[in-house]
Nucleic acid binder design. Structure first.
Lengths: 246, 246
DNA sequence: CGGTGCATTGAAACCCGTCAAGGGGGGTGG
DNA sequence: CCACCCCCCTTGACGGGTTTCAATGCACCG
């Protein structure tokens, strides 16, 4: 895990070669089973760059085509709390859909090189009034985000390090599976241990020790930029009830 | 704090004598500066009773007229994680507004005797299309809930017991002030220490110790069912950045 | 080849959970 | 009016989980 292999290298901005589109997960492609939208813009973002600063009022809704990003808050002491991880196919900045002209509370930043496409808020909002598939898509995105926030509270509120990490890995596994990014229990894992720590409310030193524990117990295997889940059942046992939440 | 004094005793269900209405915080009263709604029902709920079970699809939006309630999840091991506290004037079950016909993920329960009024989802949704004041009301309610969830993650994730408690008390102070329920830094406090613990991810024993610390340092004073904030600045110093979040 | 970023590890301090016991107030029943 | 019970607050001791601080090592890069 020393260095993150640039897995998401082939960042294709063109919609006709977009992996998301191919699986029908982006309303800008003809494969999407519903209302077709046209994207306003597509941006290539380098690792570590801000996507949206906080306190800015968004005019678009964004979908992340490739790469990983975070939504986070920074405290006065400099500490960082990561609220959500964003993976390819995630729609973020969704508040804008429901609450136009309200500033973002928290900032977004790319963790890896990433490609982000934007839709006009008005266009995206039409999904909610369109056919069943469009509505299902938009509602699912919204609902998923809310559920993840709640799960996050439960995770860090009621579980200790081992359970948090196990639950977190299972969550990623589930989400990546839905986006066709899991193969043979192998997942791209571009996160530094400090990122995981800042999300789960731990220190990076302790994340390291906990990962070591999971590794030595045979539950997972780590390679640079990749994580393999060897024993999903073991992880599930460490995070009881996880399945109900994801 | 041994016993909760029934502060919210005079639970008046009639809209014309509703304290919420008097301050213009309920769209069912003529004092509300915006679209007038008619409530579908008003229910008196006894302390400890479920308001909504989880996994049920709501047909109404609810506003809590008097009393305190929680939104919570129960894990397989029996542990409880409180997601949000609801105080008079809070609109809950708001997911129904945006996402009709989706079941509630988490249950709601009254902590004290409470009065809850319901609106038809369609009626309530019209607030978003009505005049400025109505929109502001509805958006503020929605936005507030989201912000509180995010703040909750930050609190539990990046602060230790003392800071969490300080931040939590300041949050309650702010919210109660907005509803005209703070007087002379005195707030109704019907929560058991176990409730606080289940919200902040601590044990009730440790909440007790931490409260004792705050008491002995002169930051707060506790009376049965009431909490007085003696030194807001001291609390703010314990929870840096809190002001930015509330 | 020095420098930077990140993973790894150890030792010590400390925060917090766990367990257990005691106490006080309000209610109920005698 | 008292006895009793239940719920909740309170407190102490102990152990373990986490943080903190510090040092090392490895990979990559200029």
């Amino acid at each position: 895990m020393q260095t993150a292999a640039r897995i998401s290298n082939g960042t294709s901005l063109a919609c006709d070669r977009c992996a998301l589109g191919a699986s029908g997960d982006c309303p800008a492609t003809s494969q999407f089973q519903g209302l077709q939208l046209r994207r306003v813009s597509a941006k290539q973002i380098s690792a570590g760059a801000e996507i949206f600063p906080s306190n800015e009022t968004p005019t678009t809704v964004a979908i992340i085509q490739s790469g990983w990003a975070i939504q986070y808050a920074r405290l006065l002491g400099g500490e960082r709390q990561i609220l959500t991880f964003l993976i390819p196919g995630d729609v973020f900045d969704q508040d804008a859909v429901i609450l136009p002209q309200t500033p973002n509370l928290f900032a977004f930043k790319a963790l890896t090189e990433a490609a982000v496409c934007h839709f006009a808020i008005e266009d995206y909002r039409q999904l909610f009034q369109a056919d069943v598939r469009s509505r299902r898509f938009a509602k699912r995105q919204l609902r998923r985000h809310q559920a993840l926030m709640a799960k996050h509270v439960i995770d860090i509120g009621r579980r200790r390090a081992l359970g948090r990490l196990a639950g977190f890995l299972l969550e990623l596994r589930q989400r990546l599976t839905e986006r066709n990014l899991m193969h043979d229990e192998l997942m791209p894992f571009p996160l530094r241990q400090e990122d995981v720590a800042d999300a789960l409310g731990l220190t990076h030193a302790h994340v390291n020790r906990t990962l070591k524990h999971l590794r030595e117990s045979g539950a997972i295997q780590t390679l640079p930029g990749i994580l393999r889940i060897l024993d999903p059942a073991a992880l599930a046992a460490l995070a009881p009830g996880e399945a109900l939440l994801v």
